[in-house]
């Protein structure tokens, strides 16, 4: 079993792009909304972002399958993404159960605010994944991150991702039978290491 790197992430370093925020809120870039601003402050007070990661060998079996440590996949898109990489980081990030609780509370009180809060939280979860990539990229170059569910990489790979990163233990991420993660604002990803 590879050793897991666990790290709490600094909320102040979560910087979602304008494009990401606008896309999630379904508004044009530059659009400002007082309620969204207020919810953003609440969100940032509720999150407890953290990451965990493992470094694994990338190997290619004769029959064409790709191995990330002991995880086997036949995804063509991932093979392409990891071309030339001998190692990769598998990692998970989460905004934490406190954020889940905050979102759930809003969902019960105001569907309209829930839409805004959920969109904001999604953008911040993406920012957490970006921050984790940046942290892992220290001293090396990483391929763009790739998550289960993208292209032909099946969502069922989540199970292996959670197992190998020990995200259940370190981040308290629980995988449902439908491969949804709780807390919902969690992301798992693969990034190839290019020296």
């Amino acid at each position: 079993m590879p050793s897991v790197l666990y790290r709490a992430l600094d909320v102040r370093e979560l910087l979602p792009s304008e494009e990401e925020l606008s896309a999630r809120l379904r508004v044009p870039i530059g659009f400002r909304d007082k309620r969204a601003e207020a919810l953003k402050r609440e969100l940032l007070a509720s999150v407890s972002p953290a990451m965990c990661a493992v470094r694994v060998a990338v190997t290619r079996a004769d029959e064409g399958a790709l191995y990330l440590g002991d995880i086997r996949t036949e995804s063509e898109a991932l093979k392409k993404s990891l071309r030339g990489c001998e190692q990769a980081f598998l990692f998970a990030v989460t905004l934490g159960l406190s954020c889940e609780r905050w979102l759930h509370r809003i969902s019960l009180l105001s569907p309209a605010e829930h839409f805004l809060a959920d969109a904001l939280a999604s953008a911040y979860a993406e920012a957490a994944a970006e921050l984790a990539s940046d942290i892992l990229a220290e001293g090396c170059v990483l391929t763009p991150r790739f998550s289960p569910g993208y292209a032909d990489l099946p969502l069922s790979l989540q199970k292996d991702m959670i197992r190998i990163t020990e995200a259940n233990k370190y981040l308290h991420i629980e995988l449902q039978e439908s491969f949804l993660m709780v807390p919902q604002k969690s992301i798992t990803a693969i990034a190839g290491i290019r020296r």
């Binding site: 809120l25 659009f31 309620r35 105001s110 309209a112 839409f115």
Partner: peptide
């Protein structure tokens, strides 16, 4: 008008 505004009006 965008989705957030529509939903706030609806509420």
């Amino acid at each position: 008008l965008f989705l957030p505004g529509l939903l706030m009006s609806a509420e």
